[in-house]
Nucleic acid binder design. Structure first.
Lengths: 123, 123
DNA sequence: GTCGTTGCAAAGCGTTTGCAGCCTA
DNA sequence: TAGGCTGCAAACGCTTTGCAACGAC
């Protein structure tokens, strides 16, 4: 990320305007509103660079393509809407995760996903 | 699944002898010990048929290819070893999942993954 | 013998990479 | 002007599909 280009500015702006995790296609669609000739390879390369730089974080959902979100939101998990396919941040966590661990196993991290219908779709 | 073939018998046997979730490649490798000419397309087709039949269940892990396990094990979650890449079943669950839900959201299901080092690798 | 099943190769799909031209610094 | 960045197209890895040969019933 040595140079400032309109493609990169547009991609950064997408994340400043959208706080929940976005797919590569989401980012391409939104950034192309600013830079119509933007190619998907540039989106992949820029997302990778922003992750390496620590500005973005990869969110991997089971059975779905990777999504990306801003870093610095603190420990949180995600909710995936079965209707509109959008992914939302959830605050908080659950205690007692280590009680599920079999003897001799070492816990290093965990992931947690809720599925259902979001408030917009339920209304 | 109308006919009984040696390919299908070999794939079923793999799951009777291995109780944790297996990847397509795991199944191919193990089943080829019985049926060396077994092709990967047959593994994909057979796994799909066994899932449709309700004999297997798909286990999707974040950022990994799908795995398959026998149905009928009851509600449980999974542990993925960061060293040997094996996936293990975990018994039990955590209470209070619905407390993480924002107002207006409907909960339909959840997934939970622990990561770390398994007992074999820690020893 | 019928027709469900198999293995191979080709096609799909999301992601990555090679490269010539472009554009920031 | 140098060399990092971009878009295009080709390459990749995993999964699915078309098809002719095979084999269960």
């Amino acid at each position: 990320m040595l140079r400032k280009t309109e493609q990169r500015e547009a991609i950064r702006r997408v994340f400043q305007e959208n706080h929940d995790p976005l797919s590569v296609q989401d980012v391409l669609d939104k950034a192309q509103q600013d830079v119509p000739r933007l190619g998907i390879a540039t989106v992949y390369r820029t997302l990778k660079a922003l992750v390496d730089e620590g500005w973005l974080k990869v969110v991997e959902l089971p059975g779905d393509t990777s999504r990306y979100e801003r870093t610095g939101k603190g420990h949180h998990h995600h909710f995936s809407c079965n209707k509109c396919e959008r992914v939302f941040d959830l605050e908080g966590c659950l205690p007692g995760i280590d009680t599920l661990l079999p003897p001799g196993f070492l816990l290093q991290s965990h992931e947690f996903f809720l599925y259902g219908v979001c408030a917009d779709c339920a209304a």
